[in-house]
Nucleic acid binder design. Structure first.
Lengths: 220, 220
DNA sequence: CGGAAGGTGACAGCCAGGTGACAGCTGGCA
DNA sequence: TGCCAGCTGTCACCTGGCTGTCACCTTCCG
Protein backbone atom coordinates (compact mmCIF):
# COMPACT_ATOMS: atom_id res chain seq x y z
CA UNK A 1 0.00 0.00 0.00
CA UNK A 2 1.25 3.42 -0.99
CA UNK A 3 0.69 6.54 1.12
CA UNK A 4 1.55 10.19 0.49
CA UNK A 5 1.97 12.48 3.46
CA UNK A 6 1.52 16.14 2.52
CA UNK A 7 2.51 18.00 5.66
CA UNK A 8 4.88 20.92 6.13
CA UNK A 9 5.89 20.12 9.68
CA UNK A 10 8.97 18.13 8.88
CA UNK A 11 9.20 16.35 12.25
CA UNK A 12 5.56 15.41 12.29
CA UNK A 13 5.69 14.13 8.73
CA UNK A 14 8.71 12.01 9.44
CA UNK A 15 7.24 10.58 12.63
CA UNK A 16 4.06 9.56 10.84
CA UNK A 17 6.07 8.15 7.94
CA UNK A 18 8.14 6.07 10.33
CA UNK A 19 5.03 4.65 11.94
CA UNK A 20 3.53 3.70 8.59
CA UNK A 21 6.75 2.20 7.26
CA UNK A 22 6.84 -0.01 10.30
CA UNK A 23 3.38 -1.29 9.37
CA UNK A 24 4.68 -2.31 5.98
CA UNK A 25 3.38 0.59 3.91
CA UNK A 26 5.26 2.47 1.25
CA UNK A 27 5.44 6.13 2.21
CA UNK A 28 6.35 9.35 0.44
CA UNK A 29 6.44 12.78 2.01
CA UNK A 30 5.67 16.16 0.41
CA UNK A 31 6.53 19.24 2.45
CA UNK A 32 4.58 21.72 0.35
CA UNK A 33 1.57 21.86 -1.92
CA UNK A 34 3.51 22.04 -5.17
CA UNK A 35 5.53 18.92 -4.61
CA UNK A 36 2.45 17.12 -3.33
CA UNK A 37 0.71 17.78 -6.64
CA UNK A 38 3.78 16.70 -8.56
CA UNK A 39 4.02 13.44 -6.66
CA UNK A 40 0.30 12.83 -7.01
CA UNK A 41 0.63 13.26 -10.78
CA UNK A 42 3.52 10.83 -10.96
CA UNK A 43 2.33 8.09 -8.64
CA UNK A 44 -0.92 6.33 -7.76
CA UNK A 45 -1.40 6.53 -4.01
CA UNK A 46 -3.94 4.56 -2.02
CA UNK A 47 -4.21 7.16 0.70
CA UNK A 48 -3.23 10.83 0.87
CA UNK A 49 -2.78 12.46 4.28
CA UNK A 50 -3.42 16.11 3.61
CA UNK A 51 -2.63 19.03 5.89
CA UNK A 52 -5.06 21.88 5.29
CA UNK A 53 -2.44 24.50 6.08
CA UNK A 54 -0.01 23.49 3.39
CA UNK A 55 2.42 26.11 2.03
CA UNK A 56 2.29 26.76 -1.71
CA UNK A 57 -0.96 25.12 -2.77
CA UNK A 58 -3.38 24.83 0.15
CA UNK A 59 -4.71 21.41 1.12
CA UNK A 60 -8.25 22.42 0.21
CA UNK A 61 -7.25 23.04 -3.36
CA UNK A 62 -5.43 19.75 -3.61
CA UNK A 63 -8.47 18.01 -2.22
CA UNK A 64 -10.72 19.69 -4.75
CA UNK A 65 -8.30 18.76 -7.49
CA UNK A 66 -8.30 15.10 -6.47
CA UNK A 67 -12.07 14.98 -6.34
CA UNK A 68 -12.43 16.79 -9.65
CA UNK A 69 -10.04 14.44 -11.40
CA UNK A 70 -11.83 11.44 -9.86
CA UNK A 71 -8.66 10.28 -8.25
CA UNK A 72 -9.07 6.85 -6.65
CA UNK A 73 -6.95 7.95 -3.70
CA UNK A 74 -8.68 8.23 -0.35
CA UNK A 75 -8.14 11.52 1.42
CA UNK A 76 -7.51 12.05 5.12
CA UNK A 77 -7.49 15.73 6.07
CA UNK A 78 -5.50 17.14 8.96
CA UNK A 79 -6.17 20.54 10.39
CA UNK A 80 -4.86 22.67 13.20
CA UNK A 81 -8.18 24.26 14.02
CA UNK A 82 -10.64 22.06 15.76
CA UNK A 83 -13.81 23.94 14.90
CA UNK A 84 -16.98 22.35 13.67
CA UNK A 85 -16.94 24.55 10.64
CA UNK A 86 -13.57 23.19 9.62
CA UNK A 87 -14.77 19.67 9.95
CA UNK A 88 -17.82 20.25 7.83
CA UNK A 89 -15.80 22.04 5.22
CA UNK A 90 -13.24 19.30 5.15
CA UNK A 91 -15.78 16.59 4.53
CA UNK A 92 -17.70 18.85 2.19
CA UNK A 93 -14.66 19.14 -0.01
CA UNK A 94 -14.75 15.42 -0.54
CA UNK A 95 -12.28 14.19 2.03
CA UNK A 96 -12.97 10.68 3.28
CA UNK A 97 -11.92 11.31 6.83
CA UNK A 98 -10.78 14.13 8.99
CA UNK A 99 -8.52 14.47 12.01
CA UNK A 100 -8.00 17.62 14.08
CA UNK A 101 -4.55 18.36 15.49
CA UNK A 102 -3.30 17.54 17.96
CA UNK A 103 -4.04 13.89 17.39
CA UNK A 104 -2.85 10.64 18.78
CA UNK A 105 -0.39 9.18 16.29
CA UNK A 106 -1.66 5.69 16.74
CA UNK A 107 -5.12 6.95 15.98
CA UNK A 108 -3.87 8.44 12.72
CA UNK A 109 -2.23 5.18 11.73
CA UNK A 110 -5.39 3.26 12.54
CA UNK A 111 -7.48 5.61 10.43
CA UNK A 112 -5.15 5.37 7.50
CA UNK A 113 -5.40 1.62 7.67
CA UNK A 114 -9.18 1.84 7.89
CA UNK A 115 -9.23 4.05 4.79
CA UNK A 116 -6.92 1.72 2.94
CA UNK A 117 -9.32 -1.14 3.47
CA UNK A 118 -11.91 -0.40 0.85
CA UNK A 119 -15.29 0.61 2.17
CA UNK A 120 -17.70 -2.22 2.58
CA UNK A 121 -17.19 -4.32 5.62
CA UNK A 122 -17.49 -1.88 8.49
CA UNK A 123 -14.32 -1.77 10.49
CA UNK A 124 -14.53 -2.86 14.06
CA UNK A 125 -10.92 -2.90 15.08
CA UNK A 126 -10.16 -4.46 18.37
CA UNK A 127 -6.78 -4.80 19.93
CA UNK A 128 -5.85 -7.44 22.40
CA UNK A 129 -3.46 -9.88 23.93
CA UNK A 130 -4.57 -12.99 25.81
CA UNK A 131 -7.45 -12.01 28.09
CA UNK A 132 -6.82 -8.29 27.54
CA UNK A 133 -9.13 -6.57 25.05
CA UNK A 134 -9.03 -2.96 23.90
CA UNK A 135 -11.66 -1.25 21.76
CA UNK A 136 -10.27 2.08 20.55
CA UNK A 137 -13.60 3.15 19.07
CA UNK A 138 -15.42 2.80 22.34
CA UNK A 139 -12.48 3.67 24.51
CA UNK A 140 -12.97 0.59 26.58
CA UNK A 141 -10.47 -1.86 27.96
CA UNK A 142 -11.25 -5.14 29.67
CA UNK A 143 -9.19 -7.85 31.24
CA UNK A 144 -10.77 -11.28 31.65
CA UNK A 145 -14.12 -9.63 31.05
CA UNK A 146 -13.54 -7.12 33.81
CA UNK A 147 -13.61 -3.47 32.85
CA UNK A 148 -10.45 -1.42 33.36
CA UNK A 149 -10.70 2.26 34.33
CA UNK A 150 -7.86 3.66 32.26
CA UNK A 151 -7.01 7.34 31.99
CA UNK A 152 -6.56 8.76 28.50
CA UNK A 153 -2.77 8.63 28.60
CA UNK A 154 -2.72 5.13 29.99
CA UNK A 155 -5.17 4.05 27.34
CA UNK A 156 -3.09 5.58 24.57
CA UNK A 157 0.08 3.94 25.82
CA UNK A 158 -1.58 0.55 26.05
CA UNK A 159 -3.07 0.90 22.58
CA UNK A 160 0.32 1.81 21.18
CA UNK A 161 2.00 -1.15 22.84
CA UNK A 162 -0.68 -3.52 21.60
CA UNK A 163 -0.33 -2.20 18.07
CA UNK A 164 3.42 -2.77 18.35
CA UNK A 165 2.40 -6.44 18.60
CA UNK A 166 5.05 -7.69 20.99
CA UNK A 167 7.90 -5.55 19.72
CA UNK A 168 9.65 -3.66 22.55
CA UNK A 169 8.86 0.04 22.41
CA UNK A 170 11.33 2.52 23.88
CA UNK A 171 10.35 5.41 26.15
CA UNK A 172 11.54 7.78 23.42
CA UNK A 173 9.23 6.20 20.89
CA UNK A 174 6.30 6.41 23.25
CA UNK A 175 7.11 10.03 24.00
CA UNK A 176 7.13 10.86 20.36
CA UNK A 177 3.97 8.99 19.45
CA UNK A 178 1.70 9.15 22.44
CA UNK A 179 2.82 12.45 23.89
CA UNK A 180 3.22 15.73 22.13
CA UNK A 181 6.12 15.50 19.73
CA UNK A 182 7.63 18.56 21.46
CA UNK A 183 7.86 16.77 24.80
CA UNK A 184 10.76 17.36 27.14
CA UNK A 185 13.27 14.57 26.35
CA UNK A 186 14.33 14.29 30.00
CA UNK A 187 10.87 13.77 31.38
CA UNK A 188 10.17 10.79 33.59
CA UNK A 189 6.48 10.74 32.83
CA UNK A 190 6.68 7.63 30.69
CA UNK A 191 7.86 5.39 33.48
CA UNK A 192 5.32 6.89 35.84
CA UNK A 193 2.47 6.32 33.40
CA UNK A 194 3.63 2.81 32.59
CA UNK A 195 3.79 2.10 36.31
CA UNK A 196 0.22 3.27 36.83
CA UNK A 197 -0.92 1.31 33.80
CA UNK A 198 0.75 -1.81 35.12
CA UNK A 199 -1.01 -1.48 38.43
CA UNK A 200 -4.37 -1.26 36.70
CA UNK A 201 -3.66 -4.19 34.40
CA UNK A 202 -3.27 -6.48 37.40
CA UNK A 203 -2.00 -10.05 37.42
CA UNK A 204 -0.60 -11.97 35.70
CA UNK A 205 1.72 -9.30 34.25
CA UNK A 206 1.43 -8.68 30.50
CA UNK A 207 3.45 -5.47 30.25
CA UNK A 208 7.10 -6.35 30.55
CA UNK A 209 10.30 -4.34 30.59
CA UNK A 210 13.08 -5.22 28.20
CA UNK A 211 16.15 -3.68 29.73
CA UNK A 212 17.79 -1.03 27.54
CA UNK A 213 15.11 -1.32 24.83
CA UNK A 214 11.74 -0.51 26.29
CA UNK A 215 8.35 -1.99 27.09
CA UNK A 216 6.61 -4.92 25.53
CA UNK A 217 3.22 -6.64 25.73
CA UNK A 218 3.44 -10.41 25.71
CA UNK A 219 4.37 -13.56 27.56
CA UNK A 220 7.13 -13.60 30.17
CA UNK B 1 -23.64 0.48 -2.56
CA UNK B 2 -27.23 1.22 -3.47
CA UNK B 3 -28.84 4.60 -2.88
CA UNK B 4 -32.40 5.84 -3.40
CA UNK B 5 -32.95 9.53 -3.93
CA UNK B 6 -36.51 10.59 -3.11
CA UNK B 7 -36.68 14.20 -4.24
CA UNK B 8 -39.23 15.96 -6.39
CA UNK B 9 -36.91 18.60 -7.79
CA UNK B 10 -35.95 16.78 -10.93
CA UNK B 11 -32.81 18.79 -11.62
CA UNK B 12 -31.50 18.47 -8.10
CA UNK B 13 -32.20 14.75 -8.02
CA UNK B 14 -30.38 14.18 -11.27
CA UNK B 15 -27.38 16.25 -10.20
CA UNK B 16 -27.05 14.32 -6.97
CA UNK B 17 -27.48 11.03 -8.78
CA UNK B 18 -24.75 11.93 -11.23
CA UNK B 19 -22.37 12.79 -8.43
CA UNK B 20 -23.03 9.54 -6.62
CA UNK B 21 -22.69 7.48 -9.78
CA UNK B 22 -19.31 9.05 -10.25
CA UNK B 23 -18.29 7.79 -6.81
CA UNK B 24 -19.18 4.26 -7.81
CA UNK B 25 -22.61 3.96 -6.23
CA UNK B 26 -25.76 2.47 -7.72
CA UNK B 27 -28.47 5.11 -7.73
CA UNK B 28 -32.25 5.15 -8.24
CA UNK B 29 -34.45 8.22 -8.22
CA UNK B 30 -38.07 8.59 -7.05
CA UNK B 31 -39.81 11.86 -7.85
CA UNK B 32 -42.77 11.41 -5.52
CA UNK B 33 -43.68 9.65 -2.31
CA UNK B 34 -45.66 6.85 -3.90
CA UNK B 35 -42.93 5.67 -6.22
CA UNK B 36 -40.40 6.03 -3.42
CA UNK B 37 -42.41 3.57 -1.32
CA UNK B 38 -42.79 1.22 -4.27
CA UNK B 39 -39.06 1.21 -4.92
CA UNK B 40 -38.28 0.76 -1.25
CA UNK B 41 -40.55 -2.27 -1.18
CA UNK B 42 -38.86 -3.79 -4.21
CA UNK B 43 -35.21 -3.12 -3.45
CA UNK B 44 -32.89 -3.12 -0.44
CA UNK B 45 -31.16 0.24 -0.32
CA UNK B 46 -28.19 1.06 1.88
CA UNK B 47 -29.03 4.73 2.08
CA UNK B 48 -32.22 6.68 1.35
CA UNK B 49 -31.97 10.41 0.70
CA UNK B 50 -35.37 11.70 1.67
CA UNK B 51 -36.85 15.09 0.92
CA UNK B 52 -39.31 16.14 3.61
CA UNK B 53 -41.49 18.05 1.16
CA UNK B 54 -42.24 15.13 -1.10
CA UNK B 55 -45.48 15.17 -3.16
CA UNK B 56 -47.86 12.29 -2.59
CA UNK B 57 -46.61 10.70 0.59
CA UNK B 58 -44.59 13.18 2.67
CA UNK B 59 -41.01 12.32 3.62
CA UNK B 60 -41.90 12.21 7.29
CA UNK B 61 -44.36 9.41 6.69
CA UNK B 62 -41.88 7.45 4.64
CA UNK B 63 -39.33 7.89 7.37
CA UNK B 64 -41.78 6.64 9.97
CA UNK B 65 -42.65 3.73 7.73
CA UNK B 66 -39.01 2.74 7.34
CA UNK B 67 -38.40 2.97 11.04
CA UNK B 68 -41.58 1.03 11.85
CA UNK B 69 -40.71 -1.78 9.45
CA UNK B 70 -37.18 -1.91 10.86
CA UNK B 71 -35.71 -1.25 7.48
CA UNK B 72 -31.93 -1.58 7.50
CA UNK B 73 -31.61 1.44 5.22
CA UNK B 74 -29.97 4.53 6.63
CA UNK B 75 -31.99 7.70 6.19
CA UNK B 76 -30.67 11.11 5.27
CA UNK B 77 -33.37 13.79 5.45
CA UNK B 78 -33.36 16.90 3.30
CA UNK B 79 -35.47 19.90 4.08
CA UNK B 80 -36.03 23.36 2.76
CA UNK B 81 -36.67 24.92 6.14
CA UNK B 82 -33.59 25.47 8.12
CA UNK B 83 -34.98 25.86 11.59
CA UNK B 84 -33.56 24.03 14.51
CA UNK B 85 -36.96 22.60 15.24
CA UNK B 86 -37.04 20.97 11.84
CA UNK B 87 -33.66 19.51 12.37
CA UNK B 88 -34.54 18.12 15.74
CA UNK B 89 -37.82 16.72 14.42
CA UNK B 90 -36.05 15.03 11.55
CA UNK B 91 -33.72 13.22 13.88
CA UNK B 92 -36.57 12.55 16.26
CA UNK B 93 -38.43 10.69 13.51
CA UNK B 94 -35.55 8.27 13.31
CA UNK B 95 -33.51 9.71 10.48
CA UNK B 96 -29.80 9.04 10.77
CA UNK B 97 -28.67 12.39 9.47
CA UNK B 98 -30.17 15.63 8.32
CA UNK B 99 -29.21 18.29 5.82
CA UNK B 100 -30.93 21.66 5.33
CA UNK B 101 -31.26 23.10 1.85
CA UNK B 102 -29.46 24.73 0.31
CA UNK B 103 -26.56 22.40 0.87
CA UNK B 104 -23.14 22.03 -0.55
CA UNK B 105 -23.30 19.14 -2.95
CA UNK B 106 -19.99 17.64 -1.95
CA UNK B 107 -21.12 17.71 1.64
CA UNK B 108 -24.14 15.64 0.73
CA UNK B 109 -21.94 13.10 -0.98
CA UNK B 110 -19.60 13.02 1.99
CA UNK B 111 -22.47 12.44 4.38
CA UNK B 112 -23.95 9.67 2.29
CA UNK B 113 -20.59 7.98 2.28
CA UNK B 114 -20.29 8.46 6.00
CA UNK B 115 -23.71 6.90 6.52
CA UNK B 116 -22.88 3.97 4.31
CA UNK B 117 -19.62 3.44 6.13
CA UNK B 118 -21.24 3.54 9.52
CA UNK B 119 -21.17 0.16 11.15
CA UNK B 120 -24.60 -1.27 11.00
CA UNK B 121 -26.58 -1.30 14.13
CA UNK B 122 -29.94 -1.56 12.42
CA UNK B 123 -32.31 1.34 12.87
CA UNK B 124 -34.88 0.54 15.52
CA UNK B 125 -38.18 2.12 16.19
CA UNK B 126 -37.38 2.15 19.85
CA UNK B 127 -34.13 3.20 21.41
CA UNK B 128 -33.06 2.27 24.85
CA UNK B 129 -30.51 1.23 27.36
CA UNK B 130 -31.33 -0.75 30.49
CA UNK B 131 -34.52 0.71 31.99
CA UNK B 132 -34.37 3.76 29.73
CA UNK B 133 -36.69 3.68 26.70
CA UNK B 134 -37.00 6.27 23.95
CA UNK B 135 -39.67 6.30 21.29
CA UNK B 136 -38.60 8.73 18.57
CA UNK B 137 -41.87 8.37 16.68
CA UNK B 138 -43.95 9.46 19.63
CA UNK B 139 -41.26 11.62 21.16
CA UNK B 140 -41.56 10.02 24.53
CA UNK B 141 -38.90 8.93 26.95
CA UNK B 142 -39.36 6.81 30.04
CA UNK B 143 -37.09 5.53 32.72
CA UNK B 144 -38.21 2.53 34.74
CA UNK B 145 -41.71 3.14 33.39
CA UNK B 146 -41.73 6.72 34.62
CA UNK B 147 -42.18 9.38 31.96
CA UNK B 148 -39.36 11.89 31.50
CA UNK B 149 -40.19 15.49 30.58
CA UNK B 150 -37.40 16.12 28.10
CA UNK B 151 -37.05 19.29 26.07
CA UNK B 152 -36.54 18.89 22.33
CA UNK B 153 -32.79 19.46 22.50
CA UNK B 154 -32.36 17.10 25.39
CA UNK B 155 -34.42 14.51 23.55
CA UNK B 156 -32.37 14.85 20.39
CA UNK B 157 -29.10 14.57 22.28
CA UNK B 158 -30.27 11.48 24.11
CA UNK B 159 -31.50 9.89 20.89
CA UNK B 160 -28.18 10.56 19.22
CA UNK B 161 -26.23 9.09 22.11
CA UNK B 162 -28.43 6.01 22.19
CA UNK B 163 -27.94 5.49 18.47
CA UNK B 164 -24.19 5.69 19.01
CA UNK B 165 -24.71 2.52 21.03
CA UNK B 166 -22.09 2.98 23.69
CA UNK B 167 -19.51 4.70 21.53
CA UNK B 168 -18.32 7.98 23.08
CA UNK B 169 -19.64 10.97 21.14
CA UNK B 170 -17.68 14.20 21.23
CA UNK B 171 -19.25 17.59 21.87
CA UNK B 172 -18.15 18.50 18.37
CA UNK B 173 -20.02 15.58 16.85
CA UNK B 174 -23.13 16.44 18.83
CA UNK B 175 -22.88 20.05 17.71
CA UNK B 176 -22.68 18.97 14.13
CA UNK B 177 -25.54 16.52 14.22
CA UNK B 178 -27.97 17.84 16.78
CA UNK B 179 -27.34 21.54 16.51
CA UNK B 180 -27.10 23.62 13.39
CA UNK B 181 -23.91 22.86 11.52
CA UNK B 182 -23.09 26.57 11.57
CA UNK B 183 -22.98 26.60 15.36
CA UNK B 184 -20.36 28.59 17.18
CA UNK B 185 -17.51 26.13 17.73
CA UNK B 186 -16.70 27.64 21.12
CA UNK B 187 -20.17 27.34 22.52
CA UNK B 188 -20.67 25.74 25.89
CA UNK B 189 -24.22 24.76 25.22
CA UNK B 190 -23.44 21.09 24.83
CA UNK B 191 -22.20 20.69 28.35
CA UNK B 192 -25.13 22.66 29.69
CA UNK B 193 -27.65 20.58 27.79
CA UNK B 194 -25.95 17.36 28.78
CA UNK B 195 -25.99 18.53 32.39
CA UNK B 196 -29.72 19.22 32.28
CA UNK B 197 -30.35 15.94 30.56
CA UNK B 198 -28.36 14.13 33.20
CA UNK B 199 -30.39 15.71 35.96
CA UNK B 200 -33.62 14.54 34.33
CA UNK B 201 -32.33 11.03 33.73
CA UNK B 202 -31.84 10.57 37.46
CA UNK B 203 -30.08 7.71 39.19
CA UNK B 204 -28.30 5.44 38.63
CA UNK B 205 -26.27 7.43 36.08
CA UNK B 206 -26.33 6.14 32.51
CA UNK B 207 -24.79 9.11 30.73
CA UNK B 208 -21.06 9.07 31.37
CA UNK B 209 -18.19 11.31 30.41
CA UNK B 210 -15.12 9.87 28.76
CA UNK B 211 -12.42 12.42 29.30
CA UNK B 212 -11.04 13.91 26.09
CA UNK B 213 -13.46 11.84 23.98
CA UNK B 214 -17.01 12.77 24.80
CA UNK B 215 -20.20 11.38 26.26
CA UNK B 216 -21.40 7.83 26.31
CA UNK B 217 -24.51 5.90 27.32
CA UNK B 218 -23.76 2.70 29.13
CA UNK B 219 -22.59 1.02 32.27
CA UNK B 220 -20.08 2.65 34.57
C1' DC C 1 30.24 -3.55 45.09
C1' DG C 2 29.11 0.54 42.44
C1' DG C 3 26.68 2.70 38.91
C1' DA C 4 22.96 2.91 35.81
C1' DA C 5 18.30 1.59 34.61
C1' DG C 6 13.99 1.16 36.15
C1' DG C 7 10.01 1.39 39.86
C1' DT C 8 7.23 3.80 43.31
C1' DG C 9 4.69 6.98 46.20
C1' DA C 10 3.76 11.73 47.45
C1' DC C 11 2.48 15.97 45.87
C1' DA C 12 0.89 19.99 43.33
C1' DG C 13 -0.74 22.61 39.21
C1' DC C 14 -3.84 22.79 35.81
C1' DC C 15 -7.57 22.13 32.90
C1' DA C 16 -11.67 19.52 31.20
C1' DG C 17 -15.83 19.27 32.61
C1' DG C 18 -19.96 20.53 35.88
C1' DT C 19 -23.20 23.88 37.82
C1' DG C 20 -26.31 27.61 38.87
C1' DA C 21 -27.91 32.13 37.74
C1' DC C 22 -29.52 34.89 34.29
C1' DA C 23 -31.18 36.78 30.02
C1' DG C 24 -32.83 36.61 25.22
C1' DC C 25 -35.81 34.55 22.13
C1' DT C 26 -39.92 32.50 20.56
C1' DG C 27 -44.44 30.99 20.33
C1' DG C 28 -48.98 30.95 22.33
C1' DC C 29 -52.79 33.59 23.73
C1' DA C 30 -56.05 37.20 24.74
C1' DT D 1 -50.08 44.51 20.44
C1' DG D 2 -48.50 43.18 24.91
C1' DC D 3 -47.83 39.65 28.27
C1' DC D 4 -46.31 35.23 29.85
C1' DA D 5 -43.92 30.82 30.06
C1' DG D 6 -40.71 27.66 28.77
C1' DC D 7 -36.60 26.57 26.14
C1' DT D 8 -31.93 27.45 25.22
C1' DG D 9 -27.47 29.76 25.17
C1' DT D 10 -23.92 32.50 27.87
C1' DC D 11 -21.14 33.44 31.61
C1' DA D 12 -18.63 33.11 35.86
C1' DC D 13 -17.12 30.21 39.05
C1' DC D 14 -16.08 25.72 41.06
C1' DT D 15 -13.98 21.09 41.45
C1' DG D 16 -12.06 16.68 40.85
C1' DG D 17 -8.90 14.02 38.90
C1' DC D 18 -5.30 13.58 35.46
C1' DT D 19 -0.63 14.10 34.75
C1' DG D 20 4.12 15.63 35.36
C1' DT D 21 7.92 16.28 38.78
C1' DC D 22 10.72 14.84 42.32
C1' DA D 23 12.99 12.24 45.75
C1' DC D 24 14.10 7.97 47.00
C1' DC D 25 14.21 2.93 46.51
C1' DT D 26 15.14 -1.57 44.05
C1' DT D 27 17.14 -4.40 40.59
C1' DC D 28 20.41 -5.73 37.35
C1' DC D 29 24.90 -6.50 35.70
C1' DG D 30 29.75 -5.74 34.84
Amino acid sequence: MRVLIAEDDDRLARAVAAGLLRRGMTVDVALDGGSALAQLAATAYDVVVLDRDLPGVPGDDICRHLVATRSPSRILMLTAARSVRDRVEGLGLGADDYLPKPFDFTELVARIQALARRPGAPVRDELGYADLVLDPGRRTATRAGRKLALNPKEFAVLAYLLRADGRPVSAEELLEHVWDSAADPFTTTVKTTVGRLRAKLGDPPVLHTVRDSGYRIGAE
